[in-house]
Nucleic acid binder design. Sequence first.
DNA 1: TATTGTTATACTCTATAACTATA
DNA 2: TATAGTTATAGAGTATAACAATA
Lengths: 154, 154
Amino acid sequence: MRTISQPEAVTIDTRDDQEDLGALFAQITRRVIDAERPLLHARGLSMWEYIALSRLAIGSAPTQQALAEQMGYDKTRLIDLLDKLAVAGLVQRRPDPQDRRARIVAITPSGRARHRAVRNDIRALERELLAGFSDDEQRALRAALTRLVQAHDS
Amino acid sequence: MRTISQPEAVTIDTRDDQEDLGALFAQITRRVIDAERPLLHARGLSMWEYIALSRLAIGSAPTQQALAEQMGYDKTRLIDLLDKLAVAGLVQRRPDPQDRRARIVAITPSGRARHRAVRNDIRALERELLAGFSDDEQRALRAALTRLVQAHDS
DNA sequence: TATTGTTATACTCTATAACTATA
DNA sequence: TATAGTTATAGAGTATAACAATA
């Protein structure tokens, strides 16, 4: 591997080997996802299915479109995803009495159990990932990430 | 054999609305990339082309395969990417005298100039992204990200 | 007319296999 | 036999347009 140990830079903008923040995030994201995929697969879920269950675990979605927006997913792709989750008995779609176009999406007890199981696996992996970080460092990192996510929410 | 630290059952593990670390990283990555894409496009580069130039700005690649591995990219897709960069005069491929199968890839002065221009745009955007963070917080965040990237390099 | 859910289609990105020329 | 570069193709993932039912 590359071992270019540079002294701390004065003006980072002129250094060619200073990693872009976006590149750092992209690398970490890919590695975390690659590590999590087998855990999800072992319990019969795809990444997007897990994300959907995670959202629904917080509360039901009034419409599929709302769920798609919360997930940052495409509403047309969500259809097939929910079909599979429904067949597996992990979610339930029922028509909204107020608006018969809409379908309220809710997680089932079985879906909640599956979600918790996967989530515990994933959190164990995350603890391993952050093993070298002190509690304070972990809190600081999580706080920074949360700020970054919410910064662009406006 | 690696042991997964088990006995510490913490309170956060039972919360459904605690964001996964992976989800946080994925969200931030997507947003950063979405914000950077127009900057890259305005200067005629794709994300992967920029990544290639970033690597080559540090030093030439002895083989295309080595470059692909450094980038975390596929060697077969790299061909077309380098073709376009070469046609644009941003990189140069010359046969290795030592091994006539290999082609040494180097960035051209024009490529370096283009890379610097885009990089400055991107860094300006990153500064904007971290506007709410103090210098210490920015350093801490970057240090944490760097640690996470290198942790799995082994 | 606008919106929800849906389907079909096209497009992009990615992965795999196979070929050539060298070693 | 193995490796670097290349090509072609198949597959997954994604985006876009259009439709029926309802508001």
